[in-house]
Design a protein around this nucleic acid. Structure first.
Lengths: 144, 144
DNA sequence: TTAAGTGCAAAGGCTTTGCAGCATA
DNA sequence: TATGCTGCAAAGCCTTTGCACTTAA
């Protein structure tokens, strides 16, 4: 996993522009998932002339450099987050739309088992759960 | 899980049109995943005036009736498949794009564990793997 | 007969791309 | 200075929708 604390190290070999610096900072500050549109909304506050095209081009670069990961969380648009050394998975609440991250050691075991049994080489594993978060579950119970 | 062998039972309450009959038949015959565009290509062979709009509207109906499931397999478009009683998960090869289904009992255990630990009510679980299938892995080894 | 489905074309959302000008190294 | 990035606008996908016509029940 790359060191993303130091931007200048992180994107060595590519020009470090003000836009890229800003965007990576914003993604880092988002502290979770963010999609292109929301990133654009936040970026405009600091740089009112930045364009959506730059957002997309930067996201692609960051992804290729391994700085961020792209997720498809059942929604229409992709979500991005800073690459994290610790693997984690996602739960999306059907009521409130909240995305909750979790992790569980069984997942690695599962990946290992599947690789062995099926002969795959796995480069990426996503475990995606959908349902009701604790709060919304309570609400449902109360209303019924 | 609904009985999809008998179309007239399956979509009770909604008009059974020639288009719907055709589309459900094609999805069933696809025997795996199919996206809207490919479904459209095949449908046109039998009904050259069918429209993409009808494909999408039918897919949505089928999905709402629980006849088919929608998957987001890392690609741009959604894929659909007949709802199956046996849960299964997906592996997508990064080289050849092939989608391989597999199942593993550990998954249910994992879902159970997460529900307990996190307090979620899980209504849908997807385990998505990406990597190299056995054939493409061999090819890579040979070329290097 | 009537509520619902269909085809067509247009529009919508998300993402990519061509191009001329600008900035980084 | 030269390569590569940027903003802008246009275009590209995939999907949805408005409308007038048609069809299943």
């Amino acid at each position: 996993m790359r060191n993303i604390r130091n931007l200048d190290n992180a994107i060595t070999g590519y020009p470090i522009t003000a836009q890229r610096r800003l965007l990576l900072k914003l993604i880092r500050e988002a502290d979770g998932h963010i999609d292109a549109k929301e990133l654009y909304r936040r970026a405009i506050r600091s740089d009112e002339s930045i364009s959506l095209a730059t957002i997309y081009r930067s996201l692609r670069l960051f992804r290729e450099l391994g700085l961020v990961e792209e997720r498809r969380l059942g929604q229409l648009s992709h979500h991005y987050e800073i690459s994290q050394p610790a693997e984690h998975q996602h739960f999306v609440c059907r009521d409130c739309g909240k995305v909750i991250e979790f992790q569980n050691p069984l997942i690695n075991k599962l990946v290992g088992t599947v690789q062995e049994e099926q002969g795959f080489t796995v480069t990426r594993a996503e475990f995606y759960l959908e349902g009701y978060c604790p709060e919304c579950r309570l609400k449902k119970v109360r209303n019924e």
